[in-house]
Design a protein around this nucleic acid. Structure first.
Length: 486
RNA sequence: GGCCCCAUCGUCUAAUGGUUAGGACAUCGCCCUUUCACGGCGGUAAUAUGGGUUCGAAUCCCGUUGGGGUCACCA
């Protein structure tokens, strides 16, 4: 145990997508493995045939890889201790559960769902503290069991939990946790369809796959005593447990679909950078003990430790995610952003217009401090991609005066004389014009911005003029004069 | 309801017996500025509560309250 290389796993059920809570669990497992030179394993817990979702496993892997979490062993990456799909390990669970039956720690149960329901209702009517199976089938005779088995009636296999036992385990995050076996039900281990339940499968697989640390969500804490019992009954060494605090909705309930996006692919589709998502989710429940909040994955690996994971749940705060996205986006080089922007343009309504890299790079450097998402280059400065067709109402009312058209015409005449103007040339020409007009700069600069961009906000005026170029600027001014003259 | 977990600004968190309880997001104000941002400066804002222990408690113990999780032939 001491010098064993750590082996951890992320064991999601393939429900169709990667939940951000799942991403956080996967990330902590990954960081722990990389930090401690261990192995990170992906195991798919697909033992519920009713919940089978086509393509879910592929989708899960795609999301995980998009985030940069590469696993060492898993369904599509091989490994010595596979298969890594539980549905392909049925014979293994079957083999092990037979041992339990032999040793008396598990037993066949032939109770119908009608009897189980009646039992539960009766227990509720009596206001018993909790509903539990009454161990009816534990007391069946050998012959009865043989006959039932031979007759082929439906059966399950249950865990035989003894009463009056203390079940204690140490959790890395929560410390010592204690349960009373009287509160633990005779959990079904093998379902009537022959598939194992989570409890059996996860213990058998974690043992066989030599998992050293079980790092999972807090929702598993209350079923951990069942797992501890199984390890003891099998006479297996237990892994170390670390139950992570839950990710919460703004109302502090467990993060769920009803209150917003929960799938990694949703955030990806909304334009969040993987660096930001990973950085954000890492900080939900963990910190290095200092004030650093901006991290890349490799820095997280270097700093991560389970000992610094918090105990209490954390609200998934979109505002902070947005801020981190902006931070990560601004830290990228213009060339990196160029690639992202070209992809964004390709998927936009401007797809068939050609913009040169040189042009887009100018747009990027002028807008970089003003956007939080790549798609905002298009939505916040559409005028770099097409001429304005309408003009911001409030700004027109505020700055478009009766004398404005004539002043802008004069400005156009000055611009027209420029030869391949730089930003400074535009500025000088502008100043010369307002001087001749004997008006303040502000008198003309706002209408000019409006005429050229249709909006009242954006990069420096002369940056916009330079990026657009002389001919386009003059064209747009004339169009604005025509449109707004009324 | 039983069992289990948790409890510092609105949110994420730091402070592992001695701090004017710190930082970040958000928010508000000021500066910068032709606009909007970025940036800079500053403000509002927290130890749930009652008892202990201690010279001293956000920190340790107990109770209360509050929140969450879990009680399936789902994971």
């Amino acid at each position: 145990m001491i010098n064993e290389t750590p082996r951890v796993r992320f064991a999601p059920s393939p429900t169709g997508y990667l939940h951000v809570g799942g991403l956080r669990t996967a990330l902590y497992n990954y960081l722990f493995a990389r930090r401690n030179k261990g192995k990170f394993i992906l195991r798919i817990e697909d033992t519920d045939r009713k919940r089978f979702v086509e393509g879910a496993v592929e989708n899960l892997i795609t999301s995980l890889k998009w985030c940069g979490l590469e696993f060492d062993e898993g369904p599509d990456s091989g490994g010595e201790l596979g298969p890594y799909l539980q549905s392909q390990r049925l014979h293994i669970y079957d083999h092990h559960v037979q041992e339990l039956i032999k040793s008396g720690h598990a037993y066949y149960c032939f109770c119908t769902s009608e009897r189980l329901n009646a039992l539960r209702e009766e227990q509720q009517r009596q206001k018993l503290p909790q509903a539990k199976y009454d161990k009816h089938c534990l007391h069946l005779s050998k012959d009865e069991i043989e006959n039932n088995l031979a007759s082929g009636i439906e059966k399950v296999i249950r865990l035989n939990v003894e009463s009056n036992m203390k079940i204690i385990f140490d959790d890395i995050i929560r410390g010592r946790v204690e349960f009373d076996s009287n509160n633990i039900d005779d959990q079904i281990l093998i379902k009537s369809d022959g598939y194992p339940t989570y409890h059996l499968a996860n213990v058998v697989d974690d043992h066989l796959m030599k998992i050293t640390h079980v790092i999972r969500g807090e929702e598993w804490l209350s079923s951990t005593p069942k797992h501890v019992l199984l390890y003891d009954f099998f006479n297996w060494e237990k892994p170390q447990f670390a139950h992570l605090p839950l990710l919460l909705n703004p109302d502090r309930s467990k993060l769920s679909k009803r209150q917003g996006d929960v799938a990694v692919e949703d955030y990806r589709a909304k334009g969040y950078l993987k660096e930001a998502l990973v950085n954000f989710v890492a900080l939900l429940g963990w910190n290095a003990g200092d004030d650093k909040e901006f991290y890349y994955l490799d820095e997280l690996i270097e700093k991560f430790s389970l000992e610094r994971v918090n105990k209490s749940g954390a609200v998934f705060d979109l505002e902070k995610l947005n801020w981190l996205n902006a931070e990560h986006l601004r830290k990228k080089s213009d060339e990196e952003i160029l690639q992202l922007l070209k992809e964004e343009v390709r998927q936009s309504s401007f797809a068939d217009i050609q913009y040169s890299d040189e042009y887009l790079l100018k747009v990027i450097s002028s807008m970089k401090e003003r956007v939080s998402f790549v798609h905002e280059y298009l939505s916040k400065s559409p005028y770099f991609f097409k001429e304005p067709n309408e003009y911001e109402q409030a700004a027109v009312a505020k700055s478009w005066k009766p004398e404005t058209p004539d002043q802008l015409k004069k400005l156009c005449e000055t611009f027209a004389q420029l030869d391949n103007p730089t930003k400074e040339d535009f500025e000088h020409a502008f100043i010369k014009t307002v001087d001749e007009l004997n008006i303040g700069k502000g008198k003309l600069i706002h209408p000019l911005r409006l005429a050229v961009s249709g909006l009242s906000t954006g990069p420096g005026m002369f940056d916009i003029l330079f990026i657009l170029g002389k001919d386009e600027v003059i064209r747009r001014i004339n169009k604005a004069i025509d449109t707004l003259k009324n």
